[in-house]
Design a protein around this nucleic acid. Sequence first.
DNA 1: GTAACTTAATTAAGTTTCTGATACAGTTCG
DNA 2: CGAACTGTATCAGAAACTTAATTAAGTTAC
Lengths: 171, 171
Amino acid sequence: MPEFAELSIAGLTRVLEDFTRMHIRLPAERRLSFTTLSVLHTLAGDGPKRLTELAGSEQVTQSAITQMVTKLEREGLVERHPDPSDGRAVLVSVTAAGAAIVDGRRAERMARLSELADRLTEAERTAIAAALPALARMVELHSTAIGDSPIEREACAGDSGTDTPRDSARR
Amino acid sequence: MPEFAELSIAGLTRVLEDFTRMHIRLPAERRLSFTTLSVLHTLAGDGPKRLTELAGSEQVTQSAITQMVTKLEREGLVERHPDPSDGRAVLVSVTAAGAAIVDGRRAERMARLSELADRLTEAERTAIAAALPALARMVELHSTAIGDSPIEREACAGDSGTDTPRDSARR
DNA sequence: GTAACTTAATTAAGTTTCTGATACAGTTCG
DNA sequence: CGAACTGTATCAGAAACTTAATTAAGTTAC
């Protein structure tokens, strides 16, 4: 084992793409579309958000988010609350039922990953464990750097308005 | 760095979820839907496939794939060819133009990951590099397992203990 | 060899989800 | 206060997906 392995960005990218594919193709659980599940995941992870914030992070129009939230509200998966700091805005939060769906999907992923990890060698598991903090920090760096990245802005072609998707500092 | 770190499946799951989110919300480059991009990615990675194979891996119906391939064919991103080994089947392959789209997206991801990796410490990069082979093997183990057990089938509605709320008005 | 069954892809019709445009209420600023 | 701006909602139409029915090629049984 070389002590100074150079990190292959291509290799990392490839592996992460494969895991992405693996995670996405998982469900079908209930009649929930991909975007719907993503919204629930975002709300469960980041806490209540405005409709415009959701539209930005999910890369669909605000109109689509309004309609989706209306539907999810009817099904009892999310709730609308007025934003105390702005009379126009609505804060969408996930309900216990909605969080249960997110948790259920996570449990499935964990079960699958656990099964795969069991078939690795002890050394392989240790190597992954040792890399976890570094990987987590990459994610951390990413989320704090969104304001800088020019890629984010360029991506949202055709989106109306699109102010910079600021972080959810409200919690 | 501890020598005998136990692998936290929860931590691994969480990090991979975050990367997934990071990868998906990336572009919007050329008005292509998520499923469409996924199909191109699959074809570019795995080579020519039948429509039924694509339907299975993308978790949409065969009919949807037929329509999507027809559209992609008109746009010059994929090609249909008869399967020499089976007169009923069609082999779909990605064109150079289609591959260019996949490569472009990958390049963006690599650029972003590279930028993040630059801000890690040397030790962190080394840790990730050391874990890459093990992560790749997990993906490998996963894909070989698919052929055996049809997890992809609707059976995965398991949701592991989380009783999903009953549908209120389904309409 | 042909009748019955299976498999691969297409077509048609109907449903869900998204976009674009517009309306409207609340906020900000002169 | 009035003008400009921002956050949501609504509606018509487009796009993507599903189910069901159809065509065609391959397989099995007699």
